[in-house]
């Protein structure tokens, strides 16, 4: 049982009728890597995960996870993976603790170790005080936390997270990511996740952008953003209209005014700011320079912003903050 890759896919494909959900996917994820899938709704992210987790039979191609073929030896694959589904998969009638214990027992964890892991994880997701309440009384975020705890319970070597932190508050998100990074460092656990949160994608060592069943591009977040290259500069000034006009006149840059001030995009915004301030006649109250976001990357590679692709959300041309 020697494997160079934690996840390996070759020509993986899934067809529903005539609809191609995943098309000729090639993937290679190293052990200990954090690998992220970004893409709009219907891109095929969950379908890919389901195939890798042995829940869905690929229409063509092959895949290996944790060193085992997903179609020929699904049992060994299942032994080595943990999975947090996109949708909630808890038993609402059982309590938080019972849900976790069910999983521990199903995986045959020894009693003592299960008890310890269970207590630790309930602590991590801050549900210890609610461990005896039925899950149906939990809020959406609490359920999510419990599911993440369940995914980690049997200490999988490859952890699949399908939009893991949707609906979580920022503190919890940070806590969970800290834990994941720690796990990765200590145990060389491989994390494979999908996300719509571009901020979350920054946690990944490597990212793939998926669109319409295909991998559009793959690279580190920095690499991907480097290709796009333009920083977002937001100015707060005494007179936004005049300032925007001046930017267009003097620097020939596209500048828009909005509720948060004047927004413009330029490569190397940091170096641009001193020049800008020197040139502007209106008083400048504040300047923020934001490096390109993955949203910009997505736009660059697919011609749409991820938000457009996702449907009606707030129109924007960069990360707000």
């Amino acid at each position: 049982m020697r494997a160079r890759h934690a996840v390996l896919a070759e020509g993986l494909r899934k067809t529903y009728g005539t609809h191609e959900a995943v098309v000729d996917l090639d993937l290679a994820v190293d052990p200990g890597e954090t690998y992220g899938f970004v893409g709009p709704n219907g891109a095929g992210k969950s379908t890919t995960i389901n195939m890798l987790c042995t829940l869905l039979r690929p229409s063509a191609g092959r895949a290996e996870v944790a060193g085992h073929d997903v179609t020929r030896d699904p049992d060994s694959v299942r032994r080595g993976i943990g999975l947090v589904f996109q949708e909630s998969t808890l038993d609402g009638e059982l309590t938080a603790e019972e849900n976790l214990r069910f999983q521990a027992d199903l995986f045959g964890m020894p009693r003592a170790r299960a008890r310890r892991a269970l207590a630790d994880l309930l602590d991590l997701v801050e549900l210890t005080h609610r461990k005896d309440s039925p899950v149906r009384t939990f809020s959406g975020g609490m359920r999510r936390r419990l599911e993440i705890a369940r995914g980690l319970l049997h200490m999988p070597r490859v952890l699949f997270l399908d939009e893991p932190t949707t609906g979580l508050d920022p503190q919890t998100r940070v806590a969970i990511w800290e834990h994941l990074h720690r796990l990765r460092a200590e145990q060389e656990i491989t994390i494979f996740l999908t996300t719509h949160h571009l901020e979350e994608a920054e946690n990944c060592g490597r990212l793939a952008i998926m669109d319409q069943g295909q991998l559009v591009v793959e690279g580190t977040p920095a690499e991907l953003k480097g290709v796009v290259g333009a920083d977002l500069v937001v100015l707060r000034t005494g007179d936004d209209e005049r300032a925007a006009h001046a930017v267009r006149e003097r620097f020939g840059l596209e500048a828009r005014t909005g509720p948060d001030g004047v927004r413009l995009r330029t490569p190397d915004g940091a170096a641009f700011v001193p020049r800008l301030c020197a040139e502007l006649a209106v008083p400048v109250h504040s300047v923020t320079v934001t490096p390109p976001s993955l949203d910009d990357v997505f736009l660059h590679y697919t011609g749409r912003t991820i938000r457009e692709a996702d449907g009606p959300r707030q129109p924007d041309f960069g990360p707000r903050r």
């Binding site: 049982m1 020697r2 494997a3 160079r4 890759h5 934690a6 190293d30 052990p31 200990g32 890597e33 954090t34 690998y35 944790a66 060193g67 070597r157 920022p170 998100r173 940070v174 990511w177 800290e178 990074h181 990765r184 460092a185 060389e188 491989t190 949160h197 901020e199 979350e200 920054e202 946690n203 990944c204 060592g205 490597r206 580190t220 920095a222 953003k225 480097g226 920083d231 190397d268 915004g269 940091a270 170096a271 700011v273 300047v287 923020t288 320079v289 934001t290 490096p291 976001s293 990360p319 903050r321």
Partner: peptide, 30 residues
């Protein structure tokens, strides 16, 4: 990419940036 003047745009990223992915391809999964 140069050093940026602004704070990181993302409130969710933990203070320590994630370590780069393991570069050693010969590493054994097991």
């Amino acid at each position: 990419l140069h050093a940026r003047t602004a704070a990181h745009p993302d409130p969710y990223v933990p203070a320590e940036p994630p370590a780069p992915p393991d570069a050693d391809p010969g590493r054994d999964a097991d």
